[in-house]
Amino acid sequence: MLSLAHLDKVYPNGAHALDDVSLDVEAGEIVALVGGSGCGKTTLLRLVSGLEAPTHGEVRVDGEAIFAPHPAIGFVFQEPRLLPWLSVAENIGFGLEHLPPGERRDLVEEALLKVGLAGYGARWPRELSGGQAQRVSIVRALVTRPKVLLMDEPFSALDALTRATLQDHLIALWEASQPTLLLVTHDVEEAAALADRAVVMQPRPGRVFADIPIPLPRPRDRLSPGFVEAKRAVLAALDGSLSQPSGGKSSKGSQSPAGSWW
């Protein structure tokens, strides 16, 4: 459904963010991209969204190549990024401008209800807590019914309790329309709580290190042995990805300067 083929990304400043990343995601699947900082997971997400273009390779959604932001793809940023001059309701309806006002209002009301913010529509974004704002930003992306939802560490700025609650909210929201969900995170627990699959990435340059299925039923019990085992597997892969000497070309590059100079 969502297919990434041989994605390469080299930034103009020479930074090699991604090296030959390929990944296939089935419809309705939830995939967590896990990795240490600098492993290119955010870059990967931005390539899929069409906000940035790959140096090589291509992204396809249902066979259609993605070059620019596409109506079938929704994006939730790391920060809520609500527009401060629009009310909460107007923010949620931001991507629905093409609909007649009545229909738009109904969709927005329904969305507010779904995230437990009924009655908050007339408020300004500045009046929301961090968790509330992020919920609004998630439904803003979901209300247009995208086939693919991309999320870039959406809960990383929240405290642990809010984060766990919002993860449960997210799954409930996801169940309503079951979009394909690609989620970037550095939190192993988050990957185990949400994902059908954790793709662990390795830094410098960013590559896929391991692809770990998490075949647990939902709702997930965070204390069950299966959950703990899944966390351990992801964590082990993450440790491996960080301790592994970086791949071929760059390993020489990174070691030789200091070595040969002396």
Binding site: L113, K114, G116, L117, A118, G119, A122, A172, L173, A176
Partner: peptide, 13 residues
Amino acid sequence: MQTLSQEPKASTR
């Protein structure tokens, strides 16, 4: 359609 959490009704309009 599921209501996730109930928060007190917003009072400032």
